[in-house]
Amino acid sequence: MPHASKQLPRRLIAVSLLLFLILLLTLAWPGPGAPAPLRADMRRLTLNGEPVPDRVHLDMPHYRQTDPAWASYELRPGRTIGDIGCALTSLSMLAHVYGIQQNPAEVAASLGSWAAPLEWEVFTTLHNLRIVREDNLLDIDARVADRDWVRDSAVRALAQGRPVIVGIQHREHLTTHFIVACGYRYENGAYIVETYDTSTNNDYPSLDAIDPAWEYIRFLEISRGPS
């Protein structure tokens, strides 16, 4: 009997522990439809409620302003694509996504006097494209001033197959420059927006590589117009 009375409390403790374990597991089990557990990639972006793909790259050539094929094309007296044609060259690259196979000189020729300074809307009107999101540092609530907004907005645009043109300005020298966001990838818990830089001076391969001395001044998301 003494042996049996010692065994009973042990059995009780064992059964209680087992039940307690079941209780803990039940509470920890999220069940269907419960919020996803916290993970390193919890900041993945969504678009219309769905996660965006992890990688997107839009098909376009990487043109340089200084390509001898068009660098000397004169946009206005004494100024050439090689000098001031970064926006135009960016637009030419972007146009390929929508099947408009024009190099920078051909884009300039089609725009005539609207090529410098470049009027984006003339080109979109000519080719049934639409500027669906535009942000300008001149706006009183310029969203483009926020680098995270630019990155996330570019990712969402690219996820829909829409390239983005980003304008930047050097804070000290006030020089402006334009590049194209042509793709992105999700890597190590962060989005890297890939860019084609028209210039070889810095040749920024991505938005996050752009030196903080430059601030964003323009954001143009361009889509195809209605058929």
């Binding site: 009973l8 059995r11 009780l12 209680s16 039940l19 307690f20 209780l23």
Partner: peptide, 16 residues
């Protein structure tokens, strides 16, 4: 102790 096991297990199950 055996007399306690059944009510205790029932209580835990209800709680679950």
């Amino acid at each position: 102790v055996n007399r306690l096991l059944l009510p205790l297990a029932t209580l835990v199950l209800v709680l679950l």
